[in-house]
Design a protein around this nucleic acid. Structure first.
Lengths: 235, 235
DNA sequence: TTGATAGTCAAATACTCGTTTGAATAATAT
DNA sequence: ATATTATTCAAACGAGTATTTGACTATCAA
């Protein structure tokens, strides 16, 4: 009875250690990070993580075995996604840990992403309120697939490459809040810079869809599944 | 410039992967779990994790190198502790992930810890309110060192082994809420069972000090440092 | 059918990890 | 000084991991 409990406890630690193992490789962490933004195919992931398909497949095998990632075949693609929101939560907790503990990470984040264009004062719930009252325009700058899979409420979607062409759609009466894949993604930063050069005041949100979702806030959805045949370019 | 950002990003993932690596061994996870309850010496940890001092030392070396754990020498002991609350938060997120993802973990937790003695309805902030208004007695059943290092506000401290002897100190007018090291610790469960046998109504809180602290709620503290020379028995 | 595409598998490589053993160090007690 | 206690270190073993290569299996299109 005593050792019974001890055994079971040990078993729990062993199972949790498999999660840790899954998160012990930079490549796999990058995969997790990418998947927290939405489902991707094996090939896309291989592309975005700069490694062979075979290597990616091996990493995904381990991730699937650990339970963090799920995949299902559809046509000749295998679509991978995180096994639940609690996986995203662990990933965000880990990233947050990095920002708090490692001065180097903090520095990189500061250098590249905490520009004056970043709106750091507004919390997510405050933004939610602003959106509800139609006082701001939310601008989603990610790829179309990602936008369809889930976006912030009432967010307008323009891909970064189309921004200059479609700039007149952003009627100038309300402030524009741009976002992309998360605090480490440069898309929104570029978009905000573009808009400012065109004389349109815009700010970048220091978070993306995963953070929004992890905070328990609602997402809008356009269609059920990302369309196929396109590869994400971004980073 | 482009590849510069890519390089830095890759560097971030490498550093975060070291955290993952630190959490990829059951023994090290157990150490983290134990340390989330308060500082411990290398020898205590070796005892509690059922392994040689040398092996424990090696694990701690890795944990220290990753930055998750800090240690400082004091006399001939080295006292180890977690490097910050964000470490505890990652640990709790990981454990939560296990409970959500692995049916086996859920089952073990159910089997051993979700007895009717557990008070699952009250949230931590509600309990805080009850305590503030003096409507309940909080009972800390851990070892004295742990109690001193930090305990729930106004919690009374009686070690499990002294409970029967000191039972008359628990005046019978208010409900008793017992807690220990966390949802996986059996101390509070035993205490509640004892009290009930003695005719005193008591309930077990389904969380401990780490969870309370991670929720951002305040702790009371008795003295600064745990006394030496005693080894924790529990768990 | 043939060819192309998306993904997995198996073998082989070099590399890293966990543990044990016994020695080394450092602080304290006698 | 010597002994004792707490911890770290170094060498060595077996086990496991990451990546590459080339073969293999589906799926779909012409």
């Amino acid at each position: 009875m005593r050792s019974d409990i001890a055994d079971k406890q040990q078993a729990i630690f062993c199972m949790l250690a498999r999660f840790g193992e899954a998160m012990s490789s930079p490549k796999r962490l990058k995969i997790i990070s990418l998947l927290s933004e939405g489902p991707k195919s094996v090939e896309q992931l291989a592309d975005l993580t700069d490694q062979s398909t075979a290597a990616t497949s091996a990493h995904l095998k381990l991730l699937r075995a650990s339970g963090l990632v799920e995949g299902h075949k559809e046509g000749r693609h295998v679509w991978c996604s995180l096994a639940g929101d609690s996986v995203t939560r662990v990933w965000l907790a880990l990233r947050n840990l990095g920002e708090e503990l490692l001065p180097e990470v903090r520095e990189i984040v500061r250098d590249y992403f905490e520009h004056p264009e970043t709106l750091s004062a507004l919390t997510m719930t405050e933004i939610m309120e602003e959106v509800r009252n139609n006082r701001v325009i939310l601008l989603d700058l990610r790829d179309q697939d990602e936008y369809r899979a889930g976006h912030l409420p009432h967010a307008k979607h323009i891909e970064l490459k189309d921004l200059k062409r479609r700039v007149d759609e952003l009627a100038g009466d309300r402030p524009i809040l741009a976002y992309c894949r998360g605090p480490y993604c440069i898309t929104a930063l570029k978009g905000v810079t573009s808009l400012r050069k065109l004389g349109i005041p815009a700010q970048r949100l220091p978070f993306g869809v995963p953070e929004w979702k992890a905070a328990g806030l609602p997402l809008d959805r356009t269609s059920l599944r990302p369309s196929r045949g396109r590869k994400a370019l971004a980073n």
